[in-house]
Nucleic acid binder design. Structure first.
Lengths: 407, 407
DNA sequence: AAAACTTTTTTAATTATTTAATAAGTTTTT
DNA sequence: AAAAACTTATTAAATAATTAAAAAAGTTTT
């Protein structure tokens, strides 16, 4: 059927997005289709100018495979990464390149009824000023903190519409392009799974070290979201008997003992108390800059900064010990803003595991630092759109235009 | 192909085991095959006397579907449920009935090199004395505590063979029937998923309240085992700062604050200290009988017994709060030996969730008590064999014998 | 340098699935 | 009460997919 064929073609495009370049044999296996069927679909995609032949790959002991990749300048993605304070918007191509400068706007989410409209306007503006025709956009992917229901397109924490209406629908109607949303930490995990340190991993925990401690769970090779899409509330597991009130209203959450927010606060306090450090109270005023400054100090060997990260790392490790016991992952990936501090995390986390984990369990678990760093969420937002690519109804063929032939 | 056909037939037999009775239309959907193909396979299975027509089901608004079920007395399962002290062996048919009395032997696992041989002899003996011919047994399913690698057939905690050789292979060679092993709590969860309170659930946590606090995770409708098969080590998550040494060598594990073992110990202490209760130190001597006695006392309203369960329940609740935050399940099932105490668990666990869980999360999670009770592990062990049924190579046709026609 | 082996691609033969048409039994609607 | 709508079952023809075999292009071994 023509409907089934389209699905097959979309799957090929999706696979090529995630893998960059594949042979017909590879694709046949991934699609779980026979070789002849796959070859035919590819042939059609090539004639539609959506896919190109990229030449022969080195032989693996036999005939060299002819490789295929996505055509350039034919499809684009809009990716949006929001945190509690700042929102970043970018346009990405099918090779994971940023094709326009990353737009950054200050947009505080809590108690801000204007967020949705500002966001819509900004996305529209970015698309407009890119000069790329709208029908070349596959979709908009948005990552945001809070309790996000992916299927319904609702964020129960921020950006709420009256009657819990779908914000993906709302934005989509304004922009004219399909919209997908997910929790920020889930998208960080998705980015790591598809393009980062967890690539092709079957069981991995991606810890998003940011203003809170987020978690994206990769189970059986897929992002796990739970029954309502709220899985991964790592920040608020009750782990400490410290009597500290958390932003969520409970007491003793993991977040009360570790997070970048806490580190910045403690740094500010320390300086006030006259701790010896290369950091100044001046450079810690703005939250984002403060965070960058502390991480820089860590890398320059500042003892106070290292102490702050070590303590935070140990407490993350206590949380990770719980994860390892419950889910027996192959690897733990440290990602998000805080991961740029790099190897500093390893020792204190490992220490916590030594103390709180059954040896057999932690010995077979590795801890790795993200290579995607601060852009993980943006990459994940783009990946989110392509994860859903089969389900996007509109698929246009792109005939070879004159300019294209000339270029 | 004949190989593919066999696979399809085995899948039908498997589906009928788990669902008891299905129409051709149901099976076509489950197998993801077309109606004609499914109908043909069923026809063959009927003529091989493996499947029987059970008449017409009530109409759901159209022609009444002809239902199919597994033939009786054609296939049997051996299921074995081990705990640290006692091992139970049963023979089950395809309708989940125990066709022989459940054999119970005292068999302490720790530091006992004889376990494997005793187990093999006992299984052989049970099969022998059943009078059922060996070729009617599909397989042996065994649940056991410890770190079990399902695929490799190894238990790293007990029953170890030299060089970490597969115990499933070892037992299988002696018995002459395929053998499968899994962790006890995983099998309890499997039983609940297939025949119990978690039936057809997509996301559920099955808490196995026994001598420890086990956990079986049902994620995306399947039993989740983790990278090495060790997922669900609920008993040993570091949750308390109580300084109590756990059997695992660590400090502050969940198990140090809740388990049936702890309840029995505390009951014994309480009586020694002269607590007012209907229990006597006499009836608490034997561990299993003690446990039964305390649960009976709870149901009879004994205040001391209820107090013990309430405290244990609250601490289980603290652990469950962690599960809910991390995995956002739809339901929590209390199963295993302790679940026979029934509704007594509800209040203290709910209390702990109120205190330690974000409202949005626990409000959409239900807590249910198992209906399978003490036999959950045995049922799960049988289900384990059938979960793997497609992969079992030997499949015999069972021609209608004379006696069968006469009966 | 030839033979044996791998891997990919192509083609033809086989097999499976979908579709459509028919029929039978039920429920809902008119 | 009869007609319409719906679900299940059966069959045959049309369509599509898989499998098997063979060819092509390389690599490795003898």
């Amino acid at each position: 059927m023509t409907e089934k064929k389209k699905l097959g073609k979309n799957k090929i495009l999706k696979e090529l997005y995630f893998e960059e370049s594949l042979s017909c044999a590879d694709l046949a296996i991934k699609l779980e289709k026979s070789f002849p069927v796959t070859a035919k679909l590819i042939e059609e995609l090539v004639s539609e100018n959506l896919v190109i032949e990229t030449g022969y790959a080195p032989s693996t002991g036999g005939r060299r495979p002819l490789m295929y990749a996505l055509q350039k300048n034919v499809m684009y993605l809009v990716s949006v990464a929001m945190d509690q304070f700042v929102t970043k918007i970018a346009i990405m191509d099918m090779q994971n390149n940023f094709v326009s400068p990353i737009e950054k706007i200050v947009l505080p989410l809590p108690n801000n009824p204007l967020v949705l409209n500002v966001l819509k306007d900004k996305i529209a503006q970015v698309i407009d000023s890119s000069g790329i025709s709208k029908d070349k956009f596959v979709g908009v992917g948005i990552g945001m903190p809070g309790f996000v229901n992916v299927k319904k397109g609702i964020n129960y924490s921020f950006l709420q519409l009256p009657n819990n209406k779908s914000i993906t629908k709302n934005i989509g109607e304004k922009i004219g392009i399909p919209v997908f949303i997910d929790n920020d930490s889930s998208l960080v995990a998705l980015a790591e799974l598809r393009f980062g340190a967890a690539r092709s991993e079957m069981n991995a925990m991606v810890v998003n070290i940011g203003w809170g401690i987020g978690l994206g769970l990769i189970l059986n090779g897929e992002l796990f979201r739970g029954h309502d899409g709220f899985a991964g509330e790592f920040s608020h597991i009750p782990l400490f008997l410290n009597g500290k009130l958390c932003s969520c209203g409970k007491v003793g959450c993991l977040e009360t003992e570790t997070s970048l927010l806490l580190i910045v606060e403690k740094a500010r306090e320390g300086i006030k108390e006259g701790r010896l450090t290369r950091m100044s109270s001046q450079c810690l005023k703005d939250l984002e800059l403060a965070c960058d400054a502390i991480i820089k100090s860590v890398q320059e060997g500042d003892q106070f900064a290292i102490e702050l990260f070590s303590k935070a790392g140990y407490n993350i490790g206590k949380g990770v010990a719980v994860l390892i016991h419950l889910l027996n992952p192959k690897t733990i990936i440290l990602s998000g803003r805080g991961s740029s501090a790099g190897q500093i995390w390893q020792a204190p986390i490992q220490q916590a595991l030594n103390e709180h984990c059954i040896p057999r369990l932690y010995q077979s678990t590795t801890i790795e630092i993200s290579t995607l760093g601060i852009n993980a969420e943006l990459i994940g937002a783009a990946a989110l759109v392509m994860e859903n690519y089969e389900r996007i109804p509109v698929i246009k063929s792109h005939p070879v235009s004159l300019e294209m032939n000339l270029s």
